[in-house]
Deep mutational scan, measured.
Amino acid sequence: DAPDEFRDPLMDTLMTDPVRLPSGTIMDRSIILRHLLNSPTDPFNRQTLTESMLEPVPELKEQIQAWMR
């Protein structure tokens, strides 16, 4: 099983494109984008959230890719 820090906190699946929300939570980009289609909010604190506020986490993405090899 993947380490917890590699798993999306909402869907508990392996992240492939991790992004940091303004709240500091790291999620998979595809999952948070799907959530934003229904509700333009951070799913953990209900603060306003837009796609432009998502910050890529390239170092975590590299760690996940290395773990998958």
Score class of each variant (00 low, 15 high):
1 D>G: 13
1 D>W: 14
1 D>P: 12
2 A>H: 08
2 A>I: 15
2 A>C: 15
2 A>M: 14
2 A>D: 05
3 P>S: 04
3 P>G: 04
3 P>K: 07
3 P>R: 07
4 D>T: 14
4 D>F: 15
4 D>K: 15
4 D>L: 15
5 E>G: 10
5 E>V: 11
5 E>F: 12
5 E>Y: 14
6 F>W: 09
6 F>Y: 12
6 F>Q: 03
6 F>M: 07
7 R>N: 05
7 R>Y: 13
7 R>D: 02
7 R>P: 03
8 D>N: 02
8 D>P: 03
8 D>V: 02
8 D>A: 03
9 P>Y: 05
9 P>I: 05
9 P>K: 07
10 L>S: 05
10 L>R: 04
10 L>F: 09
10 L>N: 03
10 L>T: 09
11 M>A: 13
11 M>K: 09
12 D>G: 15
12 D>N: 15
12 D>I: 06
13 T>P: 01
13 T>H: 07
14 L>Y: 05
14 L>I: 14
14 L>C: 08
15 M>E: 01
15 M>S: 01
16 T>M: 14
16 T>G: 07
16 T>N: 10
17 D>I: 04
17 D>T: 03
17 D>F: 06
17 D>A: 15
17 D>Q: 05
18 P>M: 02
18 P>E: 01
18 P>I: 03
18 P>V: 03
18 P>Q: 03
19 V>C: 06
19 V>N: 00
20 R>D: 01
20 R>N: 01
20 R>T: 04
21 L>D: 01
21 L>N: 01
21 L>F: 02
21 L>M: 06
21 L>H: 00
22 P>L: 04
23 S>K: 03
23 S>W: 05
23 S>C: 06
23 S>A: 05
25 T>L: 13
25 T>A: 13
26 I>Q: 01
26 I>G: 00
26 I>K: 01
27 M>G: 01
27 M>N: 00
27 M>E: 01
28 D>E: 11
28 D>K: 00
28 D>W: 05
28 D>A: 02
28 D>M: 05
30 S>Y: 11
30 S>D: 11
30 S>Q: 13
31 I>M: 07
31 I>R: 02
31 I>P: 00
32 I>H: 01
32 I>M: 01
32 I>A: 05
32 I>Y: 00
33 L>C: 10
33 L>Y: 07
34 R>N: 12
34 R>S: 12
34 R>M: 13
35 H>L: 12
36 L>G: 00
36 L>Q: 00
36 L>S: 00
36 L>D: 00
37 L>R: 14
37 L>K: 14
37 L>D: 10
37 L>Q: 14
38 N>F: 14
38 N>W: 12
38 N>D: 12
40 P>Q: 14
40 P>Y: 09
41 T>C: 12
41 T>D: 07
41 T>M: 09
41 T>L: 10
41 T>K: 07
42 D>G: 03
42 D>V: 00
42 D>W: 04
43 P>F: 04
43 P>N: 02
44 F>L: 06
44 F>K: 04
44 F>M: 06
45 N>D: 10
45 N>I: 06
45 N>Y: 06
46 R>Q: 15
46 R>K: 14
46 R>T: 10
46 R>N: 15
47 Q>R: 10
47 Q>N: 11
47 Q>M: 12
48 T>W: 15
48 T>S: 13
48 T>F: 15
48 T>V: 13
49 L>V: 07
49 L>E: 01
49 L>S: 01
49 L>I: 08
50 T>A: 09
50 T>N: 12
50 T>P: 02
51 E>Q: 10
51 E>N: 07
51 E>A: 13
51 E>F: 08
51 E>G: 08
52 S>T: 11
52 S>V: 10
52 S>K: 11
53 M>I: 05
53 M>A: 07
53 M>D: 12
54 L>A: 01
54 L>C: 05
54 L>R: 01
54 L>T: 01
55 E>T: 13
55 E>P: 01
56 P>E: 12
56 P>Q: 07
56 P>M: 08
56 P>H: 07
57 V>N: 05
57 V>R: 04
57 V>C: 13
57 V>S: 05
57 V>I: 09
58 P>T: 10
58 P>K: 09
58 P>H: 11
58 P>A: 09
59 E>T: 11
59 E>K: 12
59 E>M: 11
59 E>A: 12
60 L>G: 00
60 L>P: 00
60 L>I: 06
61 K>Y: 11
61 K>C: 09
61 K>P: 01
61 K>M: 09
62 E>G: 09
62 E>Y: 12
62 E>C: 12
62 E>K: 14
63 Q>N: 08
63 Q>K: 15
64 I>K: 01
64 I>F: 02
64 I>Y: 04
64 I>V: 07
65 Q>K: 11
65 Q>E: 15
65 Q>C: 13
66 A>T: 10
66 A>G: 09
66 A>Q: 14
67 W>F: 10
67 W>A: 07
67 W>M: 06
68 M>R: 08
69 R>D: 15
